[in-house]
Design a protein around this nucleic acid. Structure first.
Lengths: 209, 209, 209, 209
DNA sequence: GATGAATGAGTATTCATTCAT
DNA sequence: GATGAATGAATACTCATTCAT
């Protein structure tokens, strides 16, 4: 790497015409696949070029560096994830148990869609510039606190029985990554089946007797 | 022309005198730290040399390749892990609930000791030669089936109430990696505290009402 | 980790545009000179880079490895050599003596042109992948049997008088490498002069009295 | 190579006790085998150590450098070769034809014994220090001139009929290396058989009709 | 005279990135 | 906006040789 941008000085604002964006997205998606299959470091720009059909030099017309591709991969997960718990449908649910169930199902579905990217995030987050890593961790923390809030509401209503809401929230958030991180030994379960089992498991773990 | 051993064709039997072994262990341990901090690919042999104080060329007197270091890191986790559920104390416990608790505590402690190595395993298992990867997955499967057996015993005795013992076992095994994979947001919890919370969480998730 | 093609699994079909090929040829030719002067192992890629004026890394744009260069050097000799005895002019000659003379002259001229490469072949054939070595030996055997056939024809016609045609053919083929292998003590002879002398020597050795 | 002796500044005079010499010879012989099998550059000191059973460091007690081993290998051929035509039995033969036959047989036998070393000399003479190379070439020239003298004597006596005695001598000397250089396609011939055939071939090539 | 460990200088090769057309 | 070619800096690894005990 010759030039080194200050880490995480922000991606170029997603401007330019949509053809440009489409190409970029194409690159990021294909690269994501390669990254998850072979690892970030083991994937060469030439392979990305071949996979996308875009000439190596031209690649740099659409992205600034290999690192930027990785960043944009993570951006992909970011946006929709953030919206998970901003969804009116979920935020509006009054019953904490129901609300928690809704969050679980929503996130499990999300984790099915972005399985590879989530795994990538676990594996390659070391490579993120601090700022970006912080952003992601912040978002995750936000998500955890959101669950924590639900749990506390449930505690008050004596629906849930747990000792440490912060811990439980953390554990639940972790459990929701089950599929991306352990898909290799969950092949036997159909998607909706697995979602239900995870839901049951978590609900039982927090439920008051 | 470089000669290249078929990856993972078995590490040289750990022979030689103990000074040799000590050096090797020193390399593996330091490298493990570097690998977890920066990632395997991003860690150079020069860095390992610097970290261990062993001259770069001399490093190769003790290990055959960078890959071998990684293999040996994983070996470190292997051996003790296997013994976890072979321990007489645990195997002898008659009550499934008590037995499960014992396993949980044992594995949580293990995961504290080998936090870095476990994380590394999640992150860099891609780089393992197939044979070694299979071995590791087999061991993990073995562990899961062991938990499953406990769960089934508990089911019969109506101590546990779960729908799918295989799934629950899988989930529990996963939960036991909580600390290595999410230590960054568990800093607030003391070790024994966390172990207890995980134990509670899991026990509640499987317990019959 | 270095990936290593199985040695000699076939050179990339000589495609690409002619500029590319020209560069490749330039590399192979310069390298051949260096190899003959210093030996293959003693010639570094840096030297080849310097000799060709092509940047070290860029060298790898045109060839895949140092080994490939060596292979291509041998390829250079291969092609034209094969055609030697497929030449209509020679194959058409009825008189065995005249035919043998023609072959001698043809091969001697060839050995003058490819002096360095032939010497290299004697010196560095150890480094060839088995398959390639076999091919070359097969070609040589083919050539020897071709001479043998001429000798046998001459024997029948009582023009030649030798005990063992196979041996004589082998010896003649060997004698035709005189110049590449012993040029250092043949400096006193002009090319055409030497060719004539070799021709005489061989013809006398096989001629019936 | 760290230190570089002035090329060919002469080998340490073969002094020391005979145990020392025996070890040295042992090294040189085993190394010669390895050199011929794999090439000089491709043979490592470690391999020589393993092959001789002498510890790597101790090797340097008996020889000064890898190069010296090569030199000593060539020395081995030198001594006896020089004596070939100094043998009273041969020098005393009056008849040029008989004398030439004797030389041929002597040298062919020699080439059988030192097949590997002769081949090595052809292959790796590049590595010799100038001085040593000159010595060897001088010896070879000496040998050629010796043959030339025989030829000239035969010419005077009208026993031989050749145009250029110098050339013929050169060619004959070359032919006497047939076996070391082409053993791969002479496997079909028994030793004494081959010697006789070479003798016939050469004699016929120079004989007056 | 044996041995384990060191070391320095090198070697082929890789790869992200850019330049010229 | 496409393409072939260039380039610089790095990377894992090797090996002859020597040192300390």
């Amino acid at each position: 790497m010759r030039k080194k941008r200050e880490a995480g000085e922000g991606l170029a604002p997603v401007e330019k015409n949509s053809v440009f964006q489409k190409r970029q997205l194409q690159i990021v998606k294909k690269a994501a696949k390669l990254f998850t299959k072979k690892g970030y470091a083991q994937t060469t720009m030439r392979e990305i070029s071949k996979a996308t059909g875009i000439d190596l030099s031209n690649l740099y017309y659409f992205i600034e560096s290999k690192e930027e591709i990785l960043f944009r991969v993570f951006e992909m997960i970011h946006r929709p994830e953030s919206s998970v718990f901003e969804k009116r449908e979920i935020m509006g649910i009054a019953d904490p148990a129901e609300q928690l169930r809704a969050v679980i199902r929503e996130m499990m579905r999300f984790s099915y869609i972005y399985k590879d990217e989530v795994l990538l995030l676990y594996r390659e987050s070391k490579l993120l510039p601090k700022k970006m890593l912080k952003e992601i961790l912040a978002r995750e923390s936000h998500f955890i606190r959101y669950i924590e809030a639900i749990l506390k509401k449930g505690l008050e209503k004596k629906i849930f029985a747990i000792e440490d809401a912060a811990f439980s929230a953390s554990m639940i958030a972790y459990e929701l990554s089950l599929y991306p991180l352990r898909s290799w030994n969950l092949k036997g379960h159909a998607k909706e089946d697995l979602i239900r089992l995870v839901e049951q498991h978590i609900m039982q773990a927090v439920a008051a007797v």
